[in-house]
Amino acid sequence: MNQIIGMKDIKKTYQSRGVETMALNGVNFSMTAGEFVSIMGPSGSGKTTLLNMLATIDQPTAGDIYFKEHSLTGLKVKDLSEYRSNNLGFLFQEYNLLDHLTGFDNIALPLTFDNINHKEIVKKVHEVAHLLKIEDQLTKYPYEMSGGQKQRIATARAIIKNPTIVLADEPTGALDSGSSKDLLNLLEYLNHTMNISILMVTHDPLSASFSSRVVFLKDGKEHSTLHRGHVRERFYNEILDQLIYLGGE
């Protein structure tokens, strides 16, 4: 199996003022190349914690995290930065664009960390902008853009370095339904045509129905998994049923 990312028996406890909270309680999870996976679950089920573990911005209390069969546990801070920079793309609910940079510079930002030749950067940005149809947004500053436009810029930034996997944390959380659908179609498109793997954390069953697999978390453990058939609407109903089942348990 062509596994790109995985976690084995991950436990995470937070300690604050002497009170211990268990965020993840022995989670096993893995993804193969080209998958589009959603993670769902009620608040406090550990969705975001799991995402942060894979993003290596949070360390597990116990267990191992793998990237293409290499363990990430115990790597140095510097190597972790490099790992993120070269293999991961990020999408956030709040877009997280830098306010004082234009769309163009926001997209180019990750490439500037590596001191790549500027001509190559400019070429790359134009390519991605063309792909995402955001050429007319490049000279604008974030405050001049709508939410959907900002998230597209953020998406361009996420894929500019051809990441192995894009980690998305509620990417549609701040968008209206029209822009949400646009963005999800875009993610699906990127997943299909460019074979970018996507791991998305979401509350929204509609968003989740765009993915190929949905993993449900509950109380820090994986609870169940749904695979998508051919029809998205049907998958959407299955997800809804599963959420009702989860809530009533």
């Binding site: 830098l98 940079l101 510079d105 180019a108 930002l109 490439l111 500037t112 790549i116 500027h118 400019v122």
Partner: peptide, 19 residues
């Protein structure tokens, strides 16, 4: 001046200063 600005994290420094 992308040639200058895309090197050594100048993009961040200069844009912050301007702002």
């Amino acid at each position: 001046f992308k040639k200058y600005i895309y090197k050594n994290n100048r993009l961040l420094v200069v844009s912050t200063l301007m702002h």
